[in-house]
């Protein structure tokens, strides 16, 4: 444990210099390294909902999966502060089995993240059974969690495929919270849902956070959803955290050129702009990721300088609740 150093007691989940690289090819094919997570330091406070925003391929899902021990770490550490006795996950160690259920995840696609040929009761009871709950405890936990997510108890004998997408997502949430997790990764949980359902599920997550105090990493590419659910947000671009801060600060006053472009480009209800060409300064992404030691946004950035190409700027505090990794600041 001596390697850990100081751990903030208010932080439940922390990453230090976390790197997750995917290596493709090697022996005969050309070796290709994808830096899904590249030197990331994140702190998630106890009871907090932290939004992680980025486009697909930014590494946000990998970061979430790594935090709960689903992804092998290349280097660095994930520290789960379990009631004052930190659990360290690094390149060599895994999450101990008995701790596994304290770290839960909800997936994007409610249709594929739960086996449609299972009965609702079995889907709920199986994790509880293997977590060592008695029959009686199981029953009350199932009932509590279903009530919490707003599903009626009479769906228990149904098959999962008889449920709608929204109901399945609720069932997934019920499964996860029935295990009394301390930390939850919600990975694009409303992306696949229709507009009419999004609101309810977002409310549900806020509700669970309020009632149970479960800390959450809420991964989404939808800025408005992030705004509704979290107090703080991180903006990730190609494996790096480029901006972090309170939601209001970042959305109102984005600093990083990428965040700026993202907010500029994000569709807003504005029928009066139908004939206006939106101004977007950044270049479109290239297919291949260009490897460099510098800022991953260099090739798209309108303000890029020579320095950006060679050296990645560190996250720098520009206000009490706002950090940015850019040489412009």
């Amino acid at each position: 444990m001596s390697r850990v150093g100081y751990i903030d007691p208010n932080v439940i989940m922390e990453t230090r210099n976390l790197k997750v690289y995917f290596v493709k090819g090697g022996f005969l094919a050309k070796k290709q390294v994808t830096k899904a997570v590249d030197d990331v330091d994140v702190k998630i406070k106890k009871g907090e909902v932290l939004a992680l925003v980025g486009e697909s391929g930014s590494g946000k899902t990998t970061l979430g999966r790594t935090m709960i021990g689903l992804q092998r770490i290349t280097s660095g550490q994930v520290i789960y502060n379990r009631d004052g006795s930190p659990i360290i996950i690094d390149a060599k160690s895994k999450v101990p089995k008995h701790i596994r259920r304290e770290l839960q995840m909800i997936y994007q696609d409610p249709y594929s993240s739960i086996d449609p040929y299972m009965k609702v009761y079995d889907a709920l009871s199986m994790p509880l059974k293997y977590a060592g709950f008695s029959k009686k405890e199981m029953q009350s936990k199932i009932e509590d969690s279903l009530t919490m997510v707003g599903l009626p108890l009479d769906i228990l004998p149904n098959y999962v495929f008889q449920l709608s997408g929204g109901q399945r997502q609720r069932l997934n949430i019920a499964r996860a919270i029935s295990l009394d997790p301390k930390f939850l990764v919600a990975d694009e949980v409303v992306t696949m849902l229709d507009a009419s359902l999004k609101g309810e599920i977002v409310e549900l997550f806020k509700d669970i956070n309020r009632k149970t105090g479960i800390s959450m990493l809420f991964i989404t590419h939808e800025l408005p959803i992030a705004k509704l659910v979290a107090e703080r947000m991180l903006v990730m671009y190609r494996g790096k955290i480029v901006e972090a801060g309170s939601i209001n600060a970042v959305l109102k006053d984005p600093l990083h050129p990428y965040t700026k472009a993202l907010i500029q480009a994000y569709p807003k209800i504005s029928p009066e702009t139908k004939d206006v060409i939106k101004r977007i300064d950044v270049k479109e992404a290239e297919a291949a990721q260009i490897e460099s030691k510098g800022c991953p946004f260099y090739h798209r950035c309108p303000y890029a300088s020579e320095r950006c190409l060679h050296e990645m700027p560190k996250l720098k505090k520009v206000a009490s609740d706002h950090e940015v990794a850019c040489y412009l600041y």
């Binding site: 507009a195 009419s196 359902l197 999004k198 609101g199 309810e200 599920i201 977002v202 409310e203 939808e222 800025l223 408005p224 959803i225 705004k227 509704l228 959305l251 907010i263 994000y266 807003k268 209800i269 029928p271 009066e272 139908k274």
Partner: peptide
């Protein structure tokens, strides 16, 4: 323009309420 400003059908009205928008502080299901 008219529909976004002044939706008439109850479904359209509810749909407008359900849209997530950066400038809004709520969404309704």
């Amino acid at each position: 323009l008219d529909i976004y400003k002044n939706p008439k059908h109850p479904y359209t009205q509810l749909l407008m309420e359900a849209i997530a928008d950066i400038n809004k502080d709520y969404i309704k299901g």
